[in-house]
Write a protein that binds this DNA or RNA. Structure first.
Lengths: 202, 202
DNA sequence: TGTAAACTACACTAACTAGTTTACATCTGG
DNA sequence: CCAGATGTAAACTAGTTAGTGTAGTTTACA
């Protein structure tokens, strides 16, 4: 354990990881080249291969690093003493915040771009990714159990809830590179989603 | 105009188009190779170049062919003499039918795979693609104008309506290659969407 | 100042790419 | 049955790729 600063080697490694994630994001796994990654990292190609034995290994390392970045999904518990509207509003905002977190969309883009052409290679990444939704399922399950929402199970509720949010704050950004909607639009979306759940399930 | 059967040339051309669309679907534009396309079509590479001057031209020709296949969106008019529930049910079924049409998902996959890495090259294809939704907007606009639905405008309604359907019948199929839900599940989805619109907007 | 680890540039292999050329074969209409 | 259109294989250009090997240089540190 060297508490010093950062060894030269660590600096180089970080530069490689940074450059590689840009290249993979721009071009996808197959079209990104090790030469370009080395060039962008301002490092010799040999150094890249000293840190990572192959392109595959570099890609996996980056995927892992990206996935870890996203493990910050705290579960909001259902509270009987707070209004549904208020709690749902918080849930929507929480979800939007997650989707707009720096790196989330970029990570999702890399994963999905690869998934389109070889679904099997990233099953685990996809399942990790969809864990994002489990705290939501928890909240809805608790709300149903408490009788605050009337539904057989939470599955369709969670899908319905996230589908509308993603239609505005995920898919267009992922595929067309659109910016997030304005705050006014976000407020409108939030209100619509909250209203949708309350009117349909109480 | 030869009304005969199909000239040899036409047969070869069809084989090339068929093979190329498989290759483009599997690997995307850049990774699909003309050699592999020729091999799959059981045709010499020179013949491919006799029919299409370049890889780009072959790709465009296929895109065009695919897009034309999708121009079957008839507009259902709003009818004051029929129940909302019945009409909405028809709309959902119409939408699901469109999404499950042979080729729709495959076409969307090719377009979106390219869009992820170079959004500008296929703006027109994307806009063509989203025209799919305009008859829906028409119906909702008419329903609002007739006072059958209470909303400022149809925009958020259309998004909400399609978002839930796509969450079940488009995105999972496009990205993870999942099959369409069972008929029972489709019925449940239909019912949920119809209920959602009626409870929130009447 | 010496040493070892890490980095460097650069050349190289073997494979793949889009697209062209050549010389030959085969099908089709009249 | 033959002329002309069309298709064929295979070699070729010129470029890119992942990955390796080498010989020399920089850095950290004692």
């Amino acid at each position: 354990m060297k508490e010093k600063k950062l060894t030269r080697s660590e600096l180089k490694r970080a530069a490689i990881v940074e450059a590689a994630s840009v290249e993979f994001q721009n071009k996808g796994f197959s079209l990104a080249s090790m030469d370009d990654i080395a060039k962008r990292a301002d490092v010799s190609k040999r150094t890249v291969y000293n840190h990572f034995p192959s392109k595959e290994a570099l890609f996996s390392a980056i995927m892992l690093e990206m996935m870890e970045m996203l493990c910050a999904f705290e579960s909001l518990p259902f509270r009987a003493d707070e209004s549904l509207a208020s709690q749902l509003t918080q849930l929507v905002q929480h979800e939007i915040q997650l989707l707009s977190a720096k790196g989330f969309i970029d990570t999702a883009r890399v994963i999905i771009a690869e998934a389109i052409h070889k679904p099997e290679l990233i099953q685990d990444a996809m399942s990790e990714f969809s864990k994002q939704e489990s705290p939501l399922a928890n909240w809805f399950n608790q709300a149903i159990a408490a009788g605050a929402l009337k539904a057989k199970d939470s599955e369709i509720l969670v899908v319905q809830f996230t589908a509308v949010i993603k239609a505005y704050c995920f898919w267009p950004q992922l595929i067309q590179g659109e910016p997030l909607p304005s705050q006014a639009k976000l407020d409108e979306i939030t209100q619509t989603v909250v209203e949708m759940i309350i009117k349909q399930y109480t």
